[in-house]
Lab assay of single mutants.
Amino acid sequence: TFELKGKVGKVVKIAEDHYLVEVEGDKWIAYSDEKLSLGDRVMVVDVDGLKLKAKRIP
């Protein structure tokens, strides 16, 4: 999973306390310091076990 750092994905679902992000065809649980919206493009900035930390990108 460490190779996911720096990869770009898309928010495909918003849950109460996390997001579901699709990166290279796989879906991952993600969290972010900022509020994300459905369809936002994100970059993986860190990997915490099986969770990704994501940041919105333009």
Rank of each mutant, 00 (worst) to 15 (best):
I57H: 10
K27E: 11
K7Q: 06
L50N: 14
V21W: 00
A30F: 02
L20G: 04
S32R: 04
M43F: 04
K13L: 10
A15F: 13
I57W: 08
A15Q: 12
E22C: 11
L50A: 12
H18R: 08
A30N: 01
K55S: 06
L52Q: 01
I57D: 11
V42R: 00
G25S: 06
L50M: 12
G39T: 07
E34F: 04
S32L: 04
V47T: 07
D46E: 08
K27C: 10
P58M: 09
K13H: 10
G9V: 11
V47N: 05
M43W: 02
I14Y: 08
D40V: 05
K13C: 10
A54N: 01
K51F: 07
S37F: 13
T1K: 15
K35C: 12
V23P: 00
V11Y: 00
A15H: 12
K51R: 11
D46W: 02
A54C: 15
I29D: 14
K27Q: 11
K10I: 09
D17K: 10
E34R: 04
V47S: 07
D40E: 05
W28I: 02
G9S: 02
D46H: 03
V47Y: 08
L50Y: 13
G49F: 06
L52G: 01
V44E: 00
D46T: 03
I14W: 10
L36N: 01
L50R: 09
V12H: 06
G6N: 04
K35L: 12
V12W: 06
I57S: 06
D33S: 07
T1M: 15
V23H: 02
K53T: 05
E3Y: 04
E16I: 09
T1Y: 15
L4P: 15
Y19P: 01
K35P: 11
D17F: 10
E3V: 02
V8W: 05
P58F: 07
S37Q: 11
K13W: 12
T1F: 15
A30T: 09
I14Q: 09
L4K: 10
K13N: 11
V21H: 00
R41K: 12
V47A: 09
V44P: 01
F2W: 04
G6Y: 02
G49M: 07
D40K: 02
V45T: 08
K10N: 10
E22P: 00
K10H: 09
E16C: 12
E24H: 05
Y31Q: 11
H18M: 13
V12E: 06
G9C: 08
R41W: 12
H18L: 14
V23R: 01
Y31D: 13
I29A: 11
D17H: 09
V21L: 14
K27L: 10
V44R: 00
V11D: 00
V45D: 10
K13T: 12
L4W: 03
D48E: 12
L36W: 13
K35A: 09
G6R: 00
V47G: 05
K13Q: 11
E16M: 12
G6T: 01
D40C: 08
D26F: 14
D40S: 05
D17C: 09
L52H: 01
K7N: 04
T1N: 15
A15D: 13
G49W: 04
Y31F: 13
H18A: 08
D40F: 05
V45P: 01
K55D: 09
L4Q: 14
E34L: 04
I29W: 13
T1G: 15
L4T: 14
I14A: 13
D48R: 03
I29K: 07
S32E: 01
E3P: 15
W28E: 02
S32D: 04
V45Q: 04
R41A: 14
I14L: 12
K27F: 12
K53G: 03
K7P: 03
A15Y: 12
D33K: 07
K27G: 09
A15E: 10
A15S: 12
D33M: 07
E22N: 07
Y19K: 01
L20T: 10
V8R: 04
H18D: 12
K55E: 14
E22M: 10
R56E: 04
G25R: 06
V44K: 00
P58Y: 07
F2Y: 05
H18C: 11
M43N: 03
E24W: 03
Y19C: 07
D26R: 08
I29T: 10
D40R: 02
K35I: 12
I29P: 13
H18I: 13
L38P: 08
L36C: 11
K27P: 07
A30L: 04
A15V: 14
R41S: 14
A15T: 14
V8I: 12
K13R: 10
V12T: 10
K55V: 08
G39C: 12
Y31R: 08
I29M: 13
I14E: 12
K5Q: 15
K27A: 09
V42C: 07
L20S: 07
D26E: 09
L20C: 08
V21D: 00
L36G: 00
P58T: 09
R56D: 02
G6I: 01
L4R: 02
D46I: 02
S32P: 03
M43C: 15
L20I: 13
L52P: 01
V12I: 10
K5F: 15
K55R: 06
G39L: 10
D17Q: 12
K10C: 14
L52K: 01
K35G: 08
K10A: 13
G25T: 05
P58E: 11
E22W: 11
G9H: 01
A30G: 14
E3K: 02
G49Y: 06
V45N: 03
K10S: 12
G39I: 05
E16S: 09
K53R: 05
I14K: 08
K5H: 14
S37H: 12
V12R: 06
W28S: 01
L36A: 02
M43P: 00
R41P: 12
D40H: 06
D26G: 13
G49R: 05
L38Q: 08
V23G: 02
L50P: 13
L50E: 11
V12K: 07
W28A: 02
D33Q: 08
L38H: 08
V44A: 03
L20F: 10
G25L: 05
V44H: 01
T1L: 14
L52T: 02
D26S: 14
V8A: 06
L4C: 15
K7A: 06
Y31H: 13
E24F: 06
K13F: 11
E16G: 13
D33V: 09
D48C: 14
L52N: 01
V11S: 00
D46A: 04
G39F: 10
E16V: 11
A54L: 15
K10T: 13
E3D: 06
K5Y: 15
D48F: 08
E22L: 11
G9P: 00
K35Q: 10
G6A: 02
M43K: 06
I57K: 04
K51W: 06
F2E: 15
T1D: 15
D46Y: 03
Y19M: 12
K5W: 15
G6M: 01
D48K: 04
G49H: 08
I29G: 11
G49I: 05
V42W: 01
K10Q: 11
I57A: 09
A15M: 13
K53V: 02
L38Y: 08
V42S: 01
D40I: 05
A54F: 10
S37A: 11
K10Y: 09
V8G: 05
V47F: 14
I14V: 12
P58D: 13
G39D: 13
E24D: 07
K27N: 10
L52S: 01
L38I: 08
L4S: 07
V47Q: 14
K51P: 01
E34C: 09
S32G: 05
K35V: 10
V8N: 07
K51E: 07
A30V: 04
D26K: 10
A54P: 02
L50V: 08
V47I: 06
G9D: 00
S32Q: 03
T1V: 14
V45F: 02
I57P: 03
H18G: 13
G25C: 08
E34H: 08
I57C: 15
Y19G: 01
V11T: 08
F2C: 15
L52A: 03
V45Y: 02
S32M: 07
E24K: 03
L38V: 09
L20A: 05
S37T: 09
R41Y: 13
V45W: 02
L20R: 06
M43L: 12
D33E: 10
V8Q: 11
D48W: 07
S37R: 12
